[in-house]
Simulated scan of single mutants.
Amino acid sequence: MYQQATQAYQQSANTSASADPRALEAEALMKAAARLSVLQREWDTVSREERNETLIFNRTLWTIFVTEATASHSELPLELQNNIANLALFMFNRTMEMMGGAEPEALETMISINKSLAAGLRGQKANI
């Protein structure tokens, strides 16, 4: 699953090579937020496998973000690196809660974080 998400992210980057990397990251976050929103709405009608696939997609995206943000070559300020790491940790923990049977309303915070971060990457005010 990690490999699939990475390949999808890379393919998107390759097809938009001239695009701003921040715009690509924002697009990936919005895609994850959209998938989580659909999952939340259709929680009772989707299989456990489909739930987990969507949750793992989001977790994989956050794994990529936190890995890049905290890498030794990262030029991000330490405070921002720590903030991203804390958000990723929240996402990882919430993902486990959702896989363990939490109510679909618990997805709302994950969706909001993805949308807010995407808006910030686009230089927009979050509209959630």
Results as ranks from 00 to 15, higher is better:
50 E>M: 05
102 A>V: 08
68 E>D: 15
34 A>S: 15
59 R>H: 13
11 Q>L: 06
42 E>Y: 01
11 Q>N: 12
93 N>D: 10
97 E>H: 05
112 S>N: 14
51 R>N: 10
27 E>S: 15
36 L>W: 03
14 N>K: 14
51 R>I: 00
73 H>F: 09
6 T>V: 10
41 R>C: 14
80 L>R: 07
48 R>I: 08
98 M>K: 00
39 L>K: 07
47 S>D: 13
94 R>E: 15
39 L>C: 09
40 Q>F: 01
48 R>N: 08
103 E>Y: 12
119 A>M: 00
62 W>I: 03
124 Q>C: 02
21 P>W: 01
16 S>R: 13
109 T>W: 10
65 F>W: 06
29 L>R: 14
21 P>G: 00
84 I>F: 06
69 A>I: 05
10 Q>A: 11
18 S>P: 04
14 N>R: 13
13 A>Q: 04
1 M>F: 06
71 A>R: 11
102 A>W: 08
97 E>V: 05
54 T>P: 05
73 H>W: 13
37 S>W: 02
117 L>K: 05
93 N>W: 03
75 E>D: 13
91 M>N: 13
6 T>K: 09
104 P>A: 05
43 W>T: 04
63 T>H: 08
32 A>L: 04
80 L>E: 14
83 N>P: 00
79 E>G: 00
122 R>K: 15
29 L>T: 09
120 G>C: 02
19 A>R: 10
105 E>I: 08
116 S>K: 01
26 A>E: 09
79 E>S: 09
106 A>N: 08
22 R>A: 15
15 T>I: 01
114 N>D: 15
69 A>E: 06
39 L>T: 07
53 E>N: 08
52 N>S: 07
128 I>M: 07
92 F>R: 07
113 I>R: 11
46 V>A: 11
91 M>V: 15
14 N>V: 07
71 A>E: 04
85 A>Q: 07
2 Y>N: 14
86 N>Y: 14
1 M>S: 15
16 S>P: 00
24 L>I: 12
90 F>A: 06
47 S>G: 14
74 S>Y: 09
118 A>P: 07
123 G>T: 04
75 E>K: 10
59 R>A: 10
56 I>V: 12
39 L>G: 05
70 T>V: 05
65 F>T: 03
62 W>Y: 11
103 E>R: 12
71 A>G: 09
11 Q>E: 14
113 I>C: 02
79 E>L: 06
105 E>D: 12
24 L>G: 02
21 P>F: 00
123 G>W: 02
66 V>A: 09
48 R>F: 09
4 Q>D: 09
67 T>H: 10
42 E>I: 01
30 M>P: 02
59 R>M: 13
19 A>G: 04
100 G>Q: 08
101 G>W: 05
3 Q>R: 11
57 F>C: 03
117 L>E: 06
2 Y>D: 15
105 E>H: 05
95 T>A: 07
24 L>A: 14
13 A>P: 00
